[in-house]
Design a protein around this nucleic acid. Structure first.
Lengths: 134, 134
DNA sequence: TTCAATTTAAACACTTCCCCTTAACTTCAC
DNA sequence: GTGAAGTTAAGGGGAAGTGTTTAAATTGAA
């Protein structure tokens, strides 16, 4: 049973980083290359994101499936779809058009290519009108 | 870039589980054995724990190292050690003896064998007197 | 007790992750 | 431009995770 997502190496790097050391300095301390320190740090940050996303998913368990944004969709057309579907379900979406778009982008930075949805995104809504993505 | 920690299979099982289906029923739906459903569900829960622990770790980055509880230590002796060290640092621990022990056990269920610390546990404290473990 | 539900163990292919090196590349302040 | 910091790409060896099956063990309720 492993403890967390982060390896000892990754934690080590994050701690030194927090202290303000450069990758080069850390590389010397832990006897490796700066490129490797960069890789390790990046992996650590990636793992932290994945941890966040994992807990985000738990919310979708309590939420109902609202709709699917198909791949290729223009981000600006998403709000109308979402509002329409939410209205059908009798739930008021918690976000106005602008903040909805922002929430979509911020919560799924990797799933958009400019204004376009990369691959299909599942939208979930809970009774408070909060949105989650799967 | 993977999305979260949970695989599609794991999410699938969690969703069915949330609906109240038994492992046997799920096994039939997804065409596999009940033992396998059990394994997948267990892995999912394990992954969720790991996600939580990962985010917990971030707090230790803002916290100072307080002390190390050596392997084999009696859990009941931990509070005294922690209070003494915290006092040296001029920080007041946020927990009384009882809740401190509970917090130790609850936050590290796998790290104790009865009343004994399995392997050494690092204790971190922030300026609010909150404790974290690494 | 009996039966369904759940858990555990061992083993297997397969995939992914991790740390590392080397080498080249971008950024950016001075 | 120079130098320092950071990033990226390609590759390799080893470790760990995933889904699976089969078989046995445990739990828990009627």
């Amino acid at each position: 049973m492993k403890q967390g997502l982060l390896t000892d190496r990754q934690k080590e790097v994050l701690r030194y980083r927090k202290k303000g050391l450069t990758q080069q300095q850390i590389a010397e301390i832990i006897h490796t290359s700066k490129a490797n320190v960069c890789t390790i740090e990046k992996a650590a940050i990636e793992n932290i994101s994945r941890a966040r996303e994992t807990l985000e998913f738990l919310y979708t368990l309590d939420a109902a499936h609202l709709c699917t944004l198909p791949g290729g969709l223009d981000l600006l057309k998403a709000p109308e779809i979402i509002y329409t579907e939410a209205e059908k379900m009798g739930v008021k979406v918690k976000y106005d058009t602008i903040s909805l778009i922002n929430r979509l982008r911020d919560a799924n930075p990797d799933r958009f290519r400019g204004r376009q949805v990369r691959d299909a995104v599942e939208i979930y809504i809970n009774e408070d009108g909060d949105l989650y993505f799967g």
